[in-house]
Nucleic acid binder design. Structure first.
Lengths: 131, 131
DNA sequence: TATTTGTATTATGATATATGATACAAAAAC
DNA sequence: GTTTTTGTATCATATATCATAATACAAATA
């Protein structure tokens, strides 16, 4: 679980950190039930403020990716979501991404190929996580 | 081409407007060569400041979705992009979206189905635009 | 000449982002 | 029972972003 933040980016640090943790869970680098570093450890490792990390953990909890227990800290625990609501959110984001990509010249086939690769990668990563 | 902005949203107005215009082009509601409303018309219609619209048009031009001629205003003109760079950008965004979606319980098949629907919709919209 | 185009400038205010220092309750570790 | 560790609350500060407002300009059109 490597965290790499770009302080020169226009993307807020807390968003970058949030995304990298979600990606880490998706890739299986962070397994369900596993502990995240404490807010202080993470802040130290990433070279950022404790409260910034705390904000990220609070967001991830609100989004249902982790649970936070005062005594044990933050634990990976992805919650399933209502299927219809999930599809709507996903569809809205996909529509924009597909519009941008296809206007820029990407074919439907290329797009699907990329999606396929990502799903394959995440699945094998998740499988390896249990070995 | 309906513009609907949510001033209560955490997404900046200029981003919302930018996205809706890109979506409009993707859907074929705004065809290549077609004029966008003038910055003042758009500002009036959307109930926002002229300079906010100007910022959006400048972004769309920098992104290669429109061209701006001082005498004629903004014209839809999507530029193709380098394939490799495009795939990298798209892949990064897709990886996050797929991680989020699959962790929330979406199957690979559902995800592909949504993508297919969007591609179909955009293609028929683009075809109808030429009738 | 008057109007319309995008755009530059300057100012203002509200909100977002990030840091820093300090403190607290609750639980664990010793 | 004391110390340490946990997330978290609070207060202050600094900077950046977002959005508006009021002008003004050059270039082109009507």
């Amino acid at each position: 679980m490597f965290i790499e933040l770009n302080t020169a980016s226009s993307i807020p640090i807390y968003t970058q950190l949030r995304n990298q943790i979600v990606l880490g869970i998706g890739r299986g680098e962070l397994k369900t039930g596993e502990h995240l570093p404490t807010v202080r450890q993470m802040a130290e490792a990433a070279g950022i403020n404790v409260m910034t990390v705390n904000k990220v953990y609070a967001i991830l909890r609100a989004e249902g990716f982790i649970e936070i227990d005062r005594r044990h800290g933050a634990v990976v625990c992805p919650r399933k979501e209502n299927a219809e609501a999930l599809q709507e959110k996903c569809s809205a984001q996909l529509e924009l991404l597909i519009a941008e990509s296809s206007l820029k010249g990407m074919s439907r086939e290329s797009f699907f190929a990329i999606c396929g690769e990502i799903f394959d990668r995440q699945q094998t990563a998740a499988e390896n996580a249990f070995l």
